[in-house]
């Protein structure tokens, strides 16, 4: 099943995230990723929701019923710029150090902190690139990792 990306413009009111996620789980829909943040318009936030649902039409309609949801656009995957951010803390030692740093820089990850026995990298890119980087780092021992939700914009809108 292919992914569907919804860009949801909402009023920046208390509880709006709870309303959206409650509606999604109430209707038994699954989501792969949800991110939320302010927009350039005052009082408006934008959520990016990634789902794999056939039932995306129902999700849209049910979310549209929420009083605080202003507009929902389903993004066209072919016209969409999408990105995600990752922070990854990996173990290093004398033997692995060079290899870790080399692999990270080949992946375009930036090192943001290095200690005696660890390094933290930041990487922004597509979800696939982030997956790949995680796999590359795995053999060295990932101590901790966090990924931000996926965000997207359609280039021709």
């Amino acid at each position: 099943m292919s992914e569907r990306i919804l860009s949801v413009l909402v009023e920046d009111k208390p509880g709006v995230l709870a309303r959206v996620s409650s509606t999604i789980s109430r209707r038994g829909f699954n989501i792969n990723s949800l991110s939320v943040g302010p927009t350039n318009i005052e009082g408006r936030s934008k959520m990016t929701i990634v789902t794999e649902l056939d039932a995306v039409e129902q999700v849209k309609k049910q979310l549209n019923k929420l009083v605080n949801v202003i507009k929902i656009v389903e993004l066209d995957p072919n016209m969409t710029i999408e990105t995600e951010v990752l922070l990854l803390k990996v173990s290093i030692n004398k033997d692995s150090q060079t290899s870790v740093i080399e692999k990270a820089s080949l992946s375009n990850a930036t090192s943001v902190d290095v200690g005696q026995d660890f390094a933290i990298f930041e990487l922004t890119g597509s979800s696939k690139e982030l997956d790949k980087f995680e796999a590359l780092m795995k053999p060295f021992g990932i101590i901790e990792m966090v990924r931000g939700g996926r965000i997207a914009l359609q280039s021709n809108l």
């Binding site: 208390p14 509880g15 709870a18 309303r19 409650s22 109430r26 929420l66 009083v67």
Partner: peptide, 14 residues
């Protein structure tokens, strides 16, 4: 109350 009634109302306010 707002949380408990969220899925039982069309809309609610605190």
């Amino acid at each position: 109350t707002v949380g408990l009634s969220m899925a039982a109302t069309k809309h609610n306010y605190l």
